[in-house]
Design a protein around this nucleic acid. Structure first.
Lengths: 132, 132
DNA sequence: GCTTGACCTTGCCATGATGGTAAGGTTCAT
DNA sequence: ATGAACCTTACCATCATGGCAAGGTCAAGC
């Protein structure tokens, strides 16, 4: 299986698969005589694992740790849970920040007449916020 | 007023103020004989404007546009509102994505025993998700 | 006057995950 | 044997920010 097929099968881009290998997240694969990377079904499972973790927002550094735990029969689920909880905390923090942005933006937009005039509540707020 | 004081007064870092000038967001300021940037009270207001817009998550490109509108007496608040609405839409999109991550992470974490054993619902989910 | 510390200058490199592009080699089907 | 579709490496770009290095400047105290 060449990298293009591995990419299609895993949902990653070929570009990223090469990048993951280069940055140490993946073990270098076997190569064909011409130097093409060869992927086995087992490799595809690893690529899918990475993709799912990326969808959940885990960093590549986190994923490196999760992959090592996954492949270690002596692992402790306590460690895995800690990694996930730490990431969840970061996600929740960003959610709060974005929520605050959303609230303020909505208020500003609601106060803007949008009648084509020069008076603008949004610019006013940015220039000298009345509150928040 | 030197850049350090301008930074303290505006809440930006000196580094970023230089960067904004370099990237065209800010007009180059006057310089002292020694080449130090000199900031007037009016400049501080601009810096504060930028900082407030950054807190709301506007990109530097957006802010360049907002600044130009702010300083244009012929502006139309319709345009300003469009910029804000576009940005709000992006914020809401990211909120949705993060919310989905949070949901899945919470489910995975709730299913993880964390008893120090090797069995791990989190890794299981990443390896072969049952659903979602 | 000279030293010292706190400030300023420019310029380069790094982050994190991803995309693009370029220049070249391979495979396969026609 | 030719062309399309694939593969290879290597470099550059994004976006906003921080860090570091090497050097100039200013003000206060001795």
């Amino acid at each position: 299986m060449n990298i293009g097929q591995a990419a299609a099968a895993s949902g990653l881009s070929a570009k990223m698969i090469r990048h993951y290998e280069h940055s140490g997240l993946l073990q270098p694969t076997q190569r064909s005589d011409a130097g093409y990377r060869q992927y086995q079904p087992k490799d595809i499972e690893i690529l899918k694992f990475i993709r799912r973790a990326r969808v959940l927002g885990f960093s590549l550094a986190d994923i490196a740790g999760l992959l090592a735990l996954w492949q270690n029969p002596q692992r402790s689920n306590t460690v895995v849970k800690q990694v996930a909880q730490q990431h969840l905390a970061e996600v929740e923090l960003k959610l709060q920040e974005l929520h605050a942005m959303k609230q303020t933006l909505q208020q500003m937009i609601a106060q803007c007449a949008a009648d084509g005039g020069a008076h603008c509540a949004i610019l006013q707020h940015l220039a000298k916020p009345t509150r928040s």
